[in-house]
Design a protein around this nucleic acid. Structure first.
Lengths: 228, 228
DNA sequence: ACCTGAACACCGTTCAAGT
DNA sequence: ACCTGAACACCGTTCAAGT
């Protein structure tokens, strides 16, 4: 008898495991799929047991964000930096951060709902600040730069319009025809753009638009740096 | 007898009144203070009665956003436009939009949570698109410009860090001292900036930072237009 | 036509009770 | 030390019943 091991020994619940399960849940079903009860269920435990390892749901969300930003920091720290070209260096960091966030679509929304900076975020921004300071940015310009980049520094911007469930091409054309009276400039733009493009899919390439705006800002900042 | 009017005749419930009450509630207590039950209570009615005038809570949120964007459209349509200077014209529109949103602090968050464009938003963007097209923007540059501005076109950007409940000056200095080892660049920046500034209040002026980023983007776009 | 009360199916969180 | 069951105080929403 004595200490015969259980046939399926229960892995002990830890904060780590809770957060990992929460991220998996959110990755798969979106953030609205994440409830304390569902999370407990996923871990084979009652929801109330979770409170032995996390303070509350906000603590879970904080932990999830920290894990994702930690993932970003891991990648960024391995990037080799071309010295003397801060624009390329910053660009690489930011696009790397973006690639991580694309795997966690819920992360931007949760990130924006947290108002306090946590250690991993401080670390990320400390690195970016160091980069531009080394490139000769004044303290003031550095400060403005961080605000101008905002969430874009971490690789995301909230889109105001989601074209993921857009109309078919024919339905779209009919819709535009009807709307051209009220919104002539908008409809004109959409029609011309979708005409140029052969793709049946959405007419906005988020990656292209993100990079366009990023380059616009980085170029502007470089101009201000050079002007002194 | 007959139709003697009630001493306090009840104003009939309408969608309009429901939305107005919802906005008042959110302006005063934040968006988390808005529940269907609280809203009914405010209107002297059971929560369930609201469903005779709005489809559901999402419909309420949609209506609230439309009302605010409508307010923006009203102001923007009255602005006189200096012809031939699209940068100034766009700047005025956007800062006007911002001034409206500052009176409805809940609006940015709700705006971002809506993924479908509604009539007032389409109208706002149609106007902005018309403005830059008239200034000689190509269709492609116009499209990029709208994405680059993003929510900034409507006068807001989500800040990643809220310094509204910041530490006192002394506490801040001690905190920075402790953190300078881990985040040397960040701490260095904050220390230098707060040293330059006499204000005891938060060290970031949101309005200044918003305008800096806006001008950076507008100038970049103007450069691309001119290069053309 | 509009409003209500009761009910349903969910939340996050507490607390005393179990082992 | 950790987990549980019951309970509390909230949600949004439905539906049959009232007037």
């Amino acid at each position: 008898m004595a200490t015969q091991t259980d046939p399926t020994p229960r892995i002990p619940l830890t904060r780590e495991r809770v957060l990992r399960a929460a991220i998996t849940l959110a990755d798969a079903g979106g953030i609205e799929a994440l409830s304390m009860r569902r999370l407990g269920q996923e871990l084979g435990v009652e929801a109330m047991s979770l409170y032995n390892h996390v303070a509350n749901k906000d603590d879970v969300l904080d932990g999830m964000v920290d894990a994702v930003v930690g993932e970003i920091n891991d990648i960024v720290s391995e990037i080799e930096m071309p010295s003397g070209d801060w624009v390329t260096a910053a660009r690489r960091r930011i696009l790397s951060a973006r690639s991580v966030l694309l795997r966690h679509p819920w992360a931007p929304g949760v990130l924006e709902s947290r108002t306090n900076m946590t250690a991993p975020m401080l670390r990320y921004f400390d690195g970016l600040i160091g980069l531009v300071r080394e490139a000769g940015f004044s303290v003031d310009l550095t400060h403005h730069a961080m605000h101008a980049l905002g969430s874009r520094a971490l690789g995301f911007t909230q889109e105001l319009y989601d074209d993921s469930d857009d109309l078919s091409d024919e339905a779209m054309m009919m819709f535009l025809q009807q709307m051209s009276g009220e919104y002539p400039h908008l409809v004109g733009m959409v029609q011309e753009i979708s005409h140029d493009d052969d793709s049946t899919l959405g007419w906005c390439d988020d990656q292209t638009e993100f990079e366009f705006a990023l380059d616009l800002i980085l170029d502007g900042l470089e101009r201000l740096r050079a002007a002194g």
